[in-house]
Amino acid sequence: MLALEGVVSGYGPSPVLHGLSLTVAEGEIVTILGSNGAGKTTTLRTIQGLLRPRAGEIRLAGQPIQGLATDQVVRLGIAHCPEARLIFPRMTVRENLEMGAYVRTDREGIRQDLERVLETFPRLRERVGQRGGTLSGGEQQMLAIGRSLMARPKLLLLDEPSLGLAPMLVTQIFGIIREINRAGTSVLLVEQNARMALKVASRGYVLETGRIVLEGPAADLAQNEQVKKAYLGM
């Protein structure tokens, strides 16, 4: 459903991604592993149109989408749960979630999805009238994930969902990612927690300084000596 081909992208004069190619098939969970600065976040931002690629092509269901504005990309069904918990600090939890459905107009569906998200994250239900900025880090992470689900996306881009969370919560978050996927959403997951990421993903890519250096089924990557050494600490 999503295909990147030879994408060159970055911020300043020197690109971060040097001709990146990857695919996500319908219904798949694909993970991108890589250390800090490898270009993982840049990849997701480029897909969503927050950054404009300098070369290469990004296709969604065969249609080129590079060069579209972010709001148009969101309308096409790509939601993004950014790292660093980009929530709205002075809006309530409910308002934050409703903002996730900004591009939708089906009131009834939005109401149902809100209910579903609050069911998935009981902690958010308890704090539904509280301002986003007053939540703990883990709760803000749940809020960001919940908000991205409110778009009812076809493809979900998840940027470091486990970052800074307690191990219990990490397990829970990955369980939720699996559920989201089972409900029909394809997922592109960027993670530093390679162990967990390779457990839920069907395929994976290893990104180093803006280039894919390894790719394959998640199970194979988990057995790869290079991956073991660099990302699994074995």
Binding site: L50, E95, M99, V103
Partner: peptide, 23 residues
């Protein structure tokens, strides 16, 4: 209103606002 909420969202965090599809 929808636009009013989008204004507040953009004021609070422009990147987050773009991510949810606000122009």
């Amino acid at each position: 209103t929808r636009l009013g909420k989008a204004m507040r969202a953009t004021a609070q965090n422009r990147m987050a606002a773009q991510v949810v599809g606000i122009n």
